[in-house]
Every structure is written in C-alpha cells, then in structure tokens.
Write a protein that binds this DNA or RNA. Structure first.
Lengths: 141, 141
DNA sequence: TATTGTTATACTCTATAACTATA
DNA sequence: TATAGTTATAGAGTATAACAATA
C-alpha cells in the first residue's frame, strides 16, 4: 500500500489514476445525499437507460448485487415516482424498469454533475488533455 | 449519461478514466469477499497506516462516514484480531488504531492485488505508459 | 463549552433460502 | 427442471441524537 517500488510506468500510472478517482467516491456520496438518494439508488438511476427498459436481473448484474437486493432499491425508487416496473411481453416472469419523466429529469441533472471532469484534468494544457484522451482511447482498442 | 457531446478532450478523457475504473468496484468487492471482509472493512484496512497509528476520527474522515459508523467497523476488525485500539498519550479521549501483525500481513496481500494495473493499461506500449504517467504527474502539480 | 468515541435507534443494503409464477 | 422476481430473515453499514470522559 505504501510506495512499493512502482515497478512499471503502467503501475505508477494506475496509482495516479486511483489518486485521481479516489475523491470521486465522496463526490458521489455527496451528490446522492444532496438529492436524498442512497448511493445504491444513485447507482441504479445512473445504470438505467432512458432509451431502453432494463430487466431487474440486468440491473442486479450492473450493480453487482443479488436480485433480492434490487427489489428493495427499486421499491424505494418506484415509491418516489422515479422508476416504473412494467411487464415484459416476451417473458411474463420478467419485469422491465423504465424511468418516469421525473426520473429522467433527475438522471439528466445527476449525469451533468458526474460528467464534469475534476480540476486536475480540466486544468491540464489542451495538448496534454488530447494526448491523455488518445492514450486512453488506445487502451480500449 | 448517454454520449452527451463530450465537449472538451478533458471530458472525454474523464469518461475514459471512469470506464477504466468502473470494473474496479467489482474487483474490490470480490477481493473483500475472498477474504471474508465487507467492503468498508477492506477500505479501513487499506486506509490504516502500518507506519503510524490512526485515530478513529481520522479514519472516519478517510472513509467519509460518521465516527459512530467507524465504531462498528473497527469492532469487527478488532474482534478478528486484525486491528488494535490503543490509548493516545497526548489526549485521553482519542483512540489510536494500529494493525496487528496479522493485520499487516493481510493488508500487504490485499495491497498487491489492488496495485496491479488493469490489462488495459498493462498492455499499452511502454511509450504510451510513460506518456500517460507523465501527463498524470503533471495533473497533480 | 467543545470534542472523541460509544451507545441507542431507525433505516438501508446485503446475501441466503424458500416461495410463486412462469418458462 | 430451471429461471425471474419477491419475501423472510439475519447481519452489516449508515446517520442522528444522546451520553460519558476528557479537553
């Protein structure tokens, strides 16, 4: 955990990425609190797709928790009028989750806040920003 | 949340960073489960300093939760013999947290796992790795 | 008076196991 | 038989408020 050598440039880069992202956790929690959401509720709102309904089990997969946990999270979101459960045509066991209009608006506002890059990146030179973007693009090729 | 323009290179870079780090959350949960720790317990172990005892309130600050929450987390860690509560000389209200020998060993093993860069970074060319590292270093200047 | 840590309380998240209804 | 979602249950995390010891 300490400064253990950092053998490769990738390892040091990874440590720096973690340092960049670390504060994001508190930012996420603060944002959830601001909108009176629990962190998993915010995660669920973020994970739902405005363009396509998502099955309960699919959401469980995205959030990395059990189906039974999703039931409670969605219960509260639905009670608040942010999400709707709808039957699925192709399989009557499945329930599809759709954002209500209010849910979509909230999700939009949340998204804007989460998308804003932290000042460490925003204050890099435009040249560095582009280089960083290009390297990260290559990382996913 | 969708592909909303990504106005600046910094915004796209930030989106890519989040994409890189996203899977890290599940990695973290899986690692905790593997060692029979809850995620906050793993976080606490990670936050404790092998070289310097940490006060309860300091740990609460790092974890971003209330002091009263830390009490329970540390209770379980202490019950398991991973952490010790010690009195502080300078202020008898304060309790200092120190890793036991077993706690240090576990933290070391955990650290090795968390420090390994994901394959997306590890498989970048050495040139890209170095450039990425250098840009991120500048981000923190 | 203010602060550190604990306790009491209430709520949320969490997984497991058992259940219902589909498939 | 197997799967999607719910319910019941028990344990852990979470903050708030009240408290004891200390500053």
């Amino acid at each position: 955990m300490a400064n253990t050598a950092l053998s490769s440039p990738a390892a040091e880069a990874w440590a720096l990425v973690q340092r960049l992202v670390g504060p994001q956790r508190k930012r996420f929690m603060a944002l959830a609190a601001e909108y009176d959401l629990s962190p998993p509720q915010l995660g669920a709102l973020k994970a739902l797709d405005p363009a396509r309904p998502v099955a309960m089990s699919e959401l469980a997969g995205i959030l990395g928790c059990d189906n039974s946990t999703v039931t409670g999270i969605v219960d509260r979101l639905e009670y608040r009028g942010l999400v709707e459960r709808r039957p699925a045509d192709h399989d009557r066991r499945v329930k599809l989750l759709a954002l209500t209009e209010e849910g979509q608006e909230l999700r939009e506002a949340l998204g804007e806040r989460l998308h804003a890059p932290p000042h460490e990146l925003a204050s890099l030179s435009l040249e560095d920003q582009r280089a960083l973007r290009d390297i990260l693009r290559r990382a996913f090729e």
